[in-house]
Every structure is written in structure tokens, then in C-alpha cells.
Write a protein that binds this DNA or RNA. Structure first.
Lengths: 178, 178
DNA sequence: GAAATTCACTTAACATGTTAATCATCTCCC
DNA sequence: GGGAGATGATTAACATGTTAAGTGAATTTC
């Protein structure tokens, strides 16, 4: 399982490259975004094979999964719950509808809105996947520790809330004229 | 700044949908994958505008950023460090090379391998973006708490390690014959 | 009450994620 | 030393992320 080679020698050369004279920034691989990315990938790696065996992608599963907890739901609201952007959701719904896993109709009160619901066929698929999914989740919980997992989730939620207000006054502020 | 509308009414309708008779599974939005996804998005939302102002995507930034800490590096190793899959890296490197932000040459010891390094121009770009990036990171740290942030990172790392060994005996096991 | 604006959703266009296939080397083994 | 298999990298093909533009319907505004 060779652990590659240590990039230590290389650092030396760079130290005197000259052009870089600043503080060395955070060790890249330990940045928060990378930590979150790797952690999530480690988790999803567990689920993907099972989903794949049922012909579902992660996002398709998210949508069907979200649909099982409501009778019907508007597209925008579904995007919010499944945490997908509108365009992604549009495409996936088109596909899921073609596969008859979901049903869609226009809201009679507002012709702009579309209302989506899971079909009987979709429910059957969910029921086929759920046991394995739950088993994997249970295994993860067992492996990592239920208490620790709960704590982690709480900290993640706190992080979300913490950042919700930051307006990110990013750099050049390209708002320009007008 | 309208904060959308509360999805409370919708819950009621769902409560008596009837068609779902199983255990209600984990409340979807509180699953670990969703928590990680939302948290990461909350973080990246802070950085994206600044990167965008410099004409960089998140992944392009990851690559350049990884290249600043080494003199040169092989493509596979870079994929590992920047946490990108080979095909993604191939495409991005093609683009970065065209923009003269990175340089590439074949390893003389093994003609299959390519060695990549950041160019002077790439370094200049990094130096232009880094201050804002660091400021944002500092703001996040201040907002969330340095102690708490460190703890979160440690828990994320532990999760990775925890899951590293799980072979995910997924469902149907489509390995078939041979 | 008609034009202007907002709103829900979709399309478009481009970048990346993901898996499979391809291509050129390289290694090993006989 | 030559062929089978392994390896590093790219290409292909399809799905999603992301921003911008488009379309039709509702709301606002005067």
C-alpha cells in the first residue's frame, strides 16, 4: 500500500524560489473546505455502489427520498429540500418522470408552479433500496460512534448557521456601473 | 431579502398521505451526507465570489494552491493531493496550461508520467488571490470559533479514518461471473 | 387595466464528477 | 527479448454544478 513519498525535500527548493515571500498560507490539505470534501466523499463512497445497483445516482436518490416524506411538493420547495439548484432539478425531474418514478402536474392556483409527487413505482424502488441504505448508515454509526456522530452533525449545523450571515465582501466587488 | 416561506403547511398534508407505511427512515435533511454537503456549501459560498473575480473555479484554485507547496509533482500525485479524479484533472490542466498558469513536461525516467509545476504567472495569480482568501478564512474562524473549528476538523479527519476500512458490501454485488 | 416588474421554471452553455474505454509505456516472466 | 499483464494518463460519454438567459404567468404600479 506504498504511502507515496514525502514531499518534504521539495519544500526546500520552493522556500528560496524567491518569488514567494509571503506567509506560507494554511497547509492546503488541512483547509476546512478540503476536510469537508474528503469527509463527505468518504461517506458517499459507502452508499454509491448500492444506489448504482438500483440505477440511481446520488441526486436522484435525494429527490425520491425527499418526495417520500410529503404527499406532493412544488419544484422550488423540492430544490430547497434536496439541496439542488433549479437547473439540475429540472433535468433530473425530466428523467425521473420519463422513467415514471415521479409524477408532475401544474398547480391550478398558479400556472407557473409545478407540483411533483412520487409514483407507486418510485415508492417500490425506494423500498428496495432503503434497507441497504439503512444498513450502511447503521454501520457508519457503529463504526464512528453514535454519540460522536450526533455531535459532529450538531457542529456542522452550527457552522451553517454561523456562516449564514456572512456576506462575503469578496475582493474586487464586480458590480460596476449602473 | 424575503426569506422564502415556511414549509409548515406542507407537512400537514403529508402526515396523512397514507401510502407510506414503513419506518419513516431518518429525517432526510438530517442525514450525514446532507449535513456535510450543506456545511461545505456554506463554506464555499464565502470563497467563490473572490475566486470568480480572479477567473478561477474552485478546482482550478485547488490545483494551483497545491502546486505552490511543491517544486513539481506528477499528475497522479497531484490528483491525490487536490482530491480530483484523473479525468477532471486532465481537463483542467489542459486549460491551465493553455492559460500559461502551469507548466508540464514528461518525466525522463518514465515516459508515461507527466510532471507539472506552477509558472511565474501562476504564482502571481496566487499572490493576488491569497490575501482575500486568507481574510475570508480568518473571518470564518472568528465567526465559528478557532477552538471549535479545530475540533470540527479533527472529527472530520476521524470520520475519514473510520470509514477508510469499510468495504461497503453494497446490495446486489454486481460482480457476476468470472 | 395595461405596461413594468417580479416570479417559477426551463434552456443554454460551460466546467466538473464519475465510470468505462483507450493508448502508450513499462514490468515481469518465460 | 518478446509477449502478457500492469500502470499513467487521456479521451469518451453521460450526469450534475453553476451562472446567465429565456419563457410564460402572476403582481405591482401608475
Amino acid at each position: 500500500m506504498a504511502r507515496k513519498k514525502t514531499p518534504t525535500e521539495l519544500r526546500a527548493a520552493q522556500a528560496e524560489a524567491g518569488s514567494l515571500r509571503r506567509a506560507p498560507m494554511r497547509e492546503f490539505s488541512r483547509s476546512l473546505p478540503m476536510s469537508l470534501l474528503r469527509a463527505r466523499e468518504a461517506v458517499m463512497r459507502q452508499f454509491r455502489p448500492s444506489l448504482r445497483n438500483h440505477g440511481l445516482t446520488e441526486q436522484q436518490w435525494r429527490i425520491l427520498r425527499a418526495l417520500t416524506s410529503v404527499d406532493e411538493i412544488e419544484v422550488t420547495e423540492l430544490a430547497h429540500v434536496a439541496f439542488l439548484l433549479g437547473p439540475s432539478l429540472s433535468r433530473i425531474l425530466r428523467d425521473l418522470e420519463a422513467r415514471q418514478l415521479v409524477e408532475r402536474k401544474v398547480a391550478q392556483t398558479d400556472l407557473r408552479r409545478a407540483v411533483v409527487s412520487i409514483s407507486a413505482r418510485g415508492l417500490k424502488l425506494i423500498e428496495a433500496v432503503a434497507p441497504t441504505s439503512e444498513a450502511i448508515y447503521a454501520a457508519i454509526t457503529r463504526q464512528y460512534g453514535a454519540r460522536k456522530l450526533a455531535e459532529l452533525q450538531e457542529m456542522l449545523g452550527a457552522l451553517e448557521i454561523s456562516l449564514a450571515g456572512m456576506t462575503s465582501a469578496g475582493d474586487g466587488e464586480v458590480e460596476a456601473d449602473e
